[in-house]
């Protein structure tokens, strides 16, 4: 029933052809899972960073906690969550969001703390209020670094979504999981190639976003 190519072949293209709808569906799910995780991670990271900058004593605990979350292996984190939140989308998203925090918080803090003291001093000297200085000077200047953080977080999340297949919500990772269980290489290849493609596209999209949002760096480089 399946034999367009020899049984040794890694991909059976007719299988791919027959599962086009499913592949599209899983790709969209993959993108959705990633976007939700990075979106929530982004909101949390901005809040945490503002908190760390505003109240200096919270800085260490915030960085330490997001570092600890990042350090827990993905499978272990799923292992901790499943007994509590079950094999659900919630479990998948909690894990994915926790992995984005460290990178996002670190890059946002580094970006803002990397603003030259002279620029900050000039802003103060001209009568910027603290909040206005943050919004119109510090945040835009931290933007390149922050987008780099978003880029790393997104690319990492695209990869981690595949692991969420273990709790039943893995986008293209579901193909990998299915292939591993059945020892059938075609869905594995579909899952692997699909998720790598998504990662590469996401990476390129952020490079473009960074280029678009930081015109002052563009001209300087020329």
């Amino acid at each position: 029933m399946i034999a367009a190519q020899g049984p040794d072949s890694l991909i059976w293209w007719d299988w791919v052809g027959r599962h086009g709808d499913e592949i599209l569906h899983k790709t969209l799910e993959h993108i959705y899972l990633t976007a939700v995780a990075v979106g929530i991670g982004l909101i949390l990271a901005v809040m945490l960073s503002v908190c760390a900058l505003r109240f200096n004593w919270t800085r260490s605990p915030i960085v330490w906690t997001s570092g600890a979350l990042y350090g827990i292996p993905s499978l272990a984190l799923f292992g901790f969550l499943v007994p509590i939140t079950g094999a659900s989308v919630l479990t998948a998203e909690i894990a994915l969001v926790s992995y984005t925090l460290l990178v996002l918080v670190q890059n946002l803090l580094a970006g803002i703390e990397g603003v030259s003291p002279a620029v900050r001093d000039a802003a103060d000297g001209m009568g910027y209020t603290a909040s206005r200085r943050f919004i119109s000077i510090e945040f835009p200047l931290a933007l390149p670094q922050f987008i780099t953080g978003l880029r790393i977080a997104t690319v990492t999340t695209v990869g981690l979504v595949t692991v969420a297949a273990l709790v039943g919500h893995g986008g293209l990772g579901d193909f990998i999981n299915d292939g591993l269980k059945r020892n059938f290489s075609t869905p594995i290849m579909v899952g692997v190639i699909g998720s790598i493609l998504l990662a590469v596209i996401a990476d390129a999209a952020f490079v473009l976003l960074q280029w678009l949002t930081t015109p002052w760096l563009r001209r300087a480089r020329r």
Binding site: L10, I152, V155, T156, V158, G159, L160, T162, V163, A165, G173, I176, G179, L180, N183, S185, I188, M189, G191, V192, S195, I196, A199, V200, D203
Partner: peptide
């Protein structure tokens, strides 16, 4: 960074 670790493992199997 771009290649998911699960993908590497899954590729190694076949």
């Amino acid at each position: 960074r771009a290649i998911p670790s699960l993908a590497i493992l899954a590729l190694a199997l076949p």
